[in-house]
Amino acid sequence: MVNKPTDHIVKSFDEDLKRLSNVIAEMGGLAEAQLTRAVEALVRRNSELATQVVQDDKRIDALETEVGQMTVRMLALRQPMAQDLREVVAAIKIASDIERIGDYAKNIAKRAIVLSTHAPMKPVASIPRMSQLALQIIKDVLDSYIEKDAEGARAAWRRDEEVDEMYNSLFREMLTYMMEDPRNIGPCTHLLFIAKNIERIGDHATNIAEIVYFLVHGRSLDEERPKGDTTNVPIDA
Rank of each mutant, 00 (worst) to 15 (best):
L77C: 12
P187E: 09
T51V: 10
P182T: 10
R37W: 00
R200Q: 07
L133H: 11
I24G: 04
E40W: 03
D181L: 11
L20N: 03
A50Q: 01
N3H: 13
A33R: 13
K93P: 00
V163P: 02
F13Y: 13
E162N: 13
L20T: 05
Y104S: 04
A150W: 08
P120Q: 08
I194Q: 03
M174E: 02
I138W: 00
D84W: 06
D222L: 09
D97W: 06
Q79I: 08
F13I: 05
R159K: 13
L142G: 05
E223I: 13
E66H: 07
N197V: 02
G228F: 04
R73H: 12
N46H: 11
N107C: 03
L215S: 04
V23N: 04
E26N: 11
V114L: 14
M179K: 13
I108M: 05
V88A: 07
R219I: 03
E32P: 05
S21F: 08
A91M: 09
G152Q: 05
K196Q: 11
A82V: 15
M27N: 05
E199T: 02
E66L: 15
P182G: 11
D229N: 15
R129N: 14
R172H: 12
G68K: 02
K58D: 09
D16N: 13
D7Y: 10
R73M: 15
E199F: 03
A195G: 10
Q132H: 15
L85N: 06
S47Y: 05
D61A: 10
V88Y: 06
R44M: 12
G29L: 10
D181R: 08
V88W: 06
S47I: 02
R44V: 07
N46V: 07
D181F: 08
T117H: 15
D14C: 08
I24F: 00
I138C: 15
L192D: 02
D164F: 07
A105R: 01
Q55N: 12
R44P: 00
M121C: 07
V88D: 05
E26L: 13
D160E: 09
L115R: 02
T65I: 14
I198E: 01
E40F: 00
